[in-house]
Nucleic acid binder design. Structure first.
Length: 582
RNA sequence: GGGGCUGUAGCUCAGUAGGAUAGAGCGAGCGCCUCCUAAGCGCUAGGCCGCGCGUUCGAUUCGCGCCAGUCCCGCCA
């Protein structure tokens, strides 16, 4: 008997695929893709609806298809005999013996029994990407949190993940800013930290306003960009000072969130921009339109039905973000040798990335062997359902948002523990966990309503609820004081339904982590962990652990220990640290 | 005007390669601590799955058309 895959879903899929092919030929192979976790636990643990669909193609009755399939299907090593129910559903139930054995495997391994993928990929994950000379704001929060979580999950599977911070450190805004500073704060151009970053942000706004209304200023700014791009020393120095200052501010936030990134900003690709345009021209993809160099897109039409252009060189000869992104794709494929490019940016950039990927493919820079994918996400809204802003209408700086979450978590803790000193680490962990979990637990494609009260709540699908479940389970483990390394086989026995329910949930971890790695939806992992906590709490409520007789006591301690390990690992993959006491 | 995303319980949201009685949390009501942290658990109430048409044995899911919200739409990123 061959080994059973860590993902039982995948194991069932490949067995069904084999049995389907044997019974019905090529059309039967697709049966493997029709197995899902059971919708209702009364039906079993996994279900396959394939026979109903296949029956139509084959012109047979669904139940006949199911019966024929079962004759060729052997899952007896981990499932009870499958049943055919309703119009032709196949239902599978895991064998308790197998469950016990699988839990033991998870218990003993340092990776919860999940081996890394056999063929790791080089993956570039592009996320966070704030703009130099501006403060990070709530809009950067989702990219940073989502990107970090995806990086952690992909790394867990053994992929080589390069986390790139594609910071906005180049282009028109620097021309504006430098020109404005020349007249208002010349010291900032050649002395480090002459301005606070907050002032810099205000100055940036002022510069933008001048740029929009003052033609002379616009021209001066344009010349400043030219200076900068040609490497003129004074412009270069000013640019470096501004970048350094911003970088330090960003780092404070990344440190607070526990997020690591490699900075490789837009300026990095500057030397490659010219070649992008030249090579597009050589490939015959480039056309001039109103003075700009464009690639006309397939499938993107304007209101007259004409193809829309992707501009890669402006009429003034400058390059833009499309050029940079094309150069980046090219560099990441040829120099970094990436096999998967992932961009975590807001949904508003969907068209832009679709256009860039299309042009890169047509130019041959993005071969079919490399997957490029935009991971879009919705807006962060305030509780009024409108864009998240301060009361005065400004965008909320990320630092103030994090500080506010910590302050509220501290106040909440104090109200429940009057007169006691507030444990800084506990409060910090809860606050950061709450912010991350609130974001990650929602389907990223929808807009998300930011609410301190909800994310910090101890009830419901929140980080504090999960952290508390972990604290409870660890409390038992400490008192139980069992050395699992010393225990022989046969640790797990199931006397009660809640134990089996918990056990079945625990063994589903691999298939959930696989789904997150392929579909890039972290909310699935959150859902899994929340359900795990609920199932653990039900078990905890119903059954004694420490006071139970052997062998139940050791088995239940084993379930507690494994639950703790899965919770800790799962939360770590979300970028959330656990607490031992609350 | 064109395109993307979204529309599911009072609120915040899951879910669906088309399938068995549509799920959870919060909020509301009721119950459970001589017992491992009650920051917990159980029960009850609450739904034309935005609207209409179509494909299908079967549509919340797929297609088309509306309606509403939101974002994007050649030289910002």
């Amino acid at each position: 008997m061959t080994a059973i895959a860590p993902s039982l879903l995948q194991e069932l899929a490949s067995r069904l695929e084999w049995a389907g092919a044997k019974t019905f030929g090529a059309v039967g192979q697709t049966l493997g893709q029709t197995v899902t976790p059971a919708k209702d636990l009364r039906f079993g643990d996994y279900q396959c609806n394939g026979p109903l669909t296949l029956a139509k193609t084959l012109g047979q009755k669904p139940r006949e298809v199911a019966t024929a399939l079962l004759a060729a299907l052997d899952v007896a090593d981990f499932c009870e005999a499958p049943t055919i129910d309703g119009p032709g559903f196949l239902n599978f139930r895991l064998k308790p013996d197998f469950l016990a054995q699988r839990l033991q495997t998870m218990q003993r391994g340092d990776r919860l029994g999940i081996p890394p993928v056999p063929h790791p990929q080089k993956i570039i994950l592009d996320f966070s990407s704030p703009n130099i000379a501006k403060e990070m704001h709530v809009g950067h929060l989702r990219s940073t949190i989502l990107g970090d979580c995806l990086a952690r999950v992909l790394s867990f599977w053994g992929h080589e993940v390069l986390r790139l911070n594609h910071v906005g450190d180049w282009g028109t805004q620097f021309g504006m800013l430098i020109t404005h500073l020349q007249t208002t704060h010349p010291a900032a151009l050649d002395q480090a930290d002459a301005l606070a970053l907050g002032d810099l942000v205000a100055l940036y706004r002022a510069a933008k306003a001048r740029f929009d209304e003052d033609a002379a200023f616009r021209e001066a700014s344009r010349l400043a960009v030219v200076d900068l791009q040609s490497g003129e020393p004074m412009a270069r120095l000013a640019w470096q000072l501004l970048c350094e200052q911003s970088r330090r501010e960003f780092q404070k936030i990344y440190d607070g969130l526990g997020v690591h990134l490699t900075e490789r900003g837009e300026s990095f690709y500057n030397p490659y921009l010219k070649a992008v345009v030249q090579d597009l021209a050589a490939l015959g993809l480039l056309q001039e339109d109103q003075g700009a160099q464009c690639v006309f897109l397939e499938g993107f039409l304007n209101k007259e039905g004409q193809p829309l252009p992707l501009i890669v060189q402006k009429s003034d000869g400058g390059y833009n973000y499309a050029t940079t992104d094309l150069a980046a794709v090219r560099y990441r494929v040829t120099q970094d040798r990436a096999q998967r490019l992932i961009y975590v940016t807001d949904a508003g950039q969907a068209d832009h990335f679709a256009a860039v990927f299309q042009v890169a493919q047509r130019a041959g820079w993005l071969p079919p062997t490399v997957e490029a994918v935009h991971v879009p996400f919705g807006l962060v809204l305030g509780e009024d359902g409108k864009k998240f802003r301060t009361r005065s209408g400004d965008t909320v700086s990320l630092q103030s948002l994090l500080d506010e979450a910590i302050a509220r978590a501290a106040a909440d803790w104090q109200s429940r523990n009057p007169g006691q000193p507030v444990p800084e680490e506990v409060v910090r962990t809860m606050a950061m966990g709450a912010i991350k979990y609130a974001d990650l637990s929602q389907n990223r494609t929808s807009n998300y309503v930011f609410s301190y009260d909800k994310m910090l709540s101890l009830q419901g699908n929140t980080a504090p609820y999960l952290l508390y479940a972990y604290v409870r389970v660890q409390g038992i483990g400490r008192k139980g004081d069992l050395d699992f390394a010393q225990l022989a086989d046969g640790l797990f026995t199931f006397a009660d339904e809640t134990e089996i329910t918990l056990a079945k949930h625990l063994v589903q971890l691999p298939e959930v982590l696989m789904a997150v790695a392929s579909d890039l939806y972290p909310n699935r992992l959150c859902q899994y962990l929340f359900e795990l906590s609920q199932k653990f709490n039900q078990f905890y409520d119903r059954l004694p652990v420490l006071a139970a007789p052997e062998p139940e006591r050791a088995s239940r301690l084993g379930l507690c220990d494994l639950t703790a390990k899965v919770l800790r690992q799962g939360l770590e993959l979300l970028g959330i640290s656990v607490l031992e006491k609350m």
